[in-house]
Amino acid sequence: MVVRAVSVPTEPVSDPVPRKLGLWASERMQASAWRLSPGQDISARMHPQADGMFLILQGEGEFQAFDKQEPEAAGAYVPSAHYPLDAPPKRPLPEPSRSAVKPGMVCVAPAGLFYGLVNTGEEQLVAVAVTASDTSGTAWTVR
């Protein structure tokens, strides 16, 4: 068995898009670190057969759960080898439930629920995203 300890980078970045770093992937789960500059977001996503969560390490933001109404089907797609070249343009989403988040908080989304994360603070937001295995092989994202 391989045991792995990884440091999550927290130094500021000034990328025009959120920065994602893969930390772990197995048949049972995957984990990634995200760094979001002020105003950036992790697009709403849904895994049909996998729970997901964010652990907030640094910064302030807003966890969004689209638990009242699904986004329009035409705004959802299955990522492909050509991602993001074939991604549709961003579309308006229904109004989500919003929860303010700060360091030490965990945000959990059950399988089948669209969810996302937005940096609403004035500093970088650092979060670790963990997703359970999704045997459907499908991850829907709304841009």
Rank of each mutant, 00 (worst) to 15 (best):
Q40D: 12
D41W: 06
D41I: 05
D41H: 12
I42Y: 05
I42H: 10
I42C: 09
S43G: 11
A44T: 06
A44Q: 11
A44S: 13
A44Y: 10
R45I: 08
R45S: 11
M46D: 07
M46F: 02
M46R: 15
H47L: 13
H47S: 11
H47R: 14
H47Q: 14
P48C: 03
P48D: 07
Q49A: 15
Q49G: 04
Q49D: 15
Q49Y: 03
A50P: 10
A50K: 07
D51N: 14
D51T: 05
D51L: 00
D51V: 00
G52P: 11
G52F: 05
G52Q: 14
M53I: 01
M53S: 14
M53H: 08
M53N: 11
F54A: 08
F54R: 04
F54C: 03
L55I: 11
L55C: 11
L55F: 10
L55K: 07
I56E: 07
I56V: 15
L57Y: 02
L57W: 04
Q58C: 04
Q58Y: 02
Q58E: 15
Q58M: 08
G59M: 04
G59F: 02
E60I: 00
G61D: 11
G61N: 06
E62V: 12
E62S: 12
E62D: 10
E62G: 01
F63Q: 09
F63M: 13
F63W: 15
Q64C: 15
Q64K: 15
A65W: 02
A65Q: 13
F66S: 01
F66M: 01
F66A: 00
D67E: 14
K68W: 03
Q69I: 05
E70M: 07
E70Y: 05
E70L: 08
E72T: 01
E72L: 06
E72I: 00
E72K: 09
A73G: 00
A73Y: 03
A73V: 08
A73M: 03
A74C: 02
A74G: 00
A74M: 04
G75D: 05
A76D: 10
A76V: 01
Y77N: 04
Y77R: 13
Y77L: 12
Y77I: 07
Y77D: 08
V78Y: 02
P79M: 09
P79K: 09
S80C: 06
S80D: 12
A81S: 12
A81C: 00
H82C: 03
H82R: 14
H82A: 12
Y83M: 10
Y83C: 00
Y83I: 02
P84A: 05
P84N: 09
P84D: 09
L85G: 07
L85R: 13
L85M: 12
D86L: 05
D86C: 03
A87H: 10
A87P: 07
A87W: 06
A87Y: 03
P88M: 11
P88V: 06
P88Y: 10
P88G: 15
P88C: 08
P89H: 10
P89K: 11
P89N: 12
P89R: 11
R91A: 14
R91D: 01
P92T: 06
P92W: 02
L93T: 13
P94L: 03
P94F: 01
E95G: 00
E95R: 06
P96T: 02
P96S: 05
S97I: 05
S97M: 06
S97Y: 00
S97F: 01
R98M: 05
S99W: 06
A100E: 13
V101P: 09
V101C: 10
V101L: 07
K102E: 13
K102C: 07
K102R: 14
P103A: 12
P103R: 03
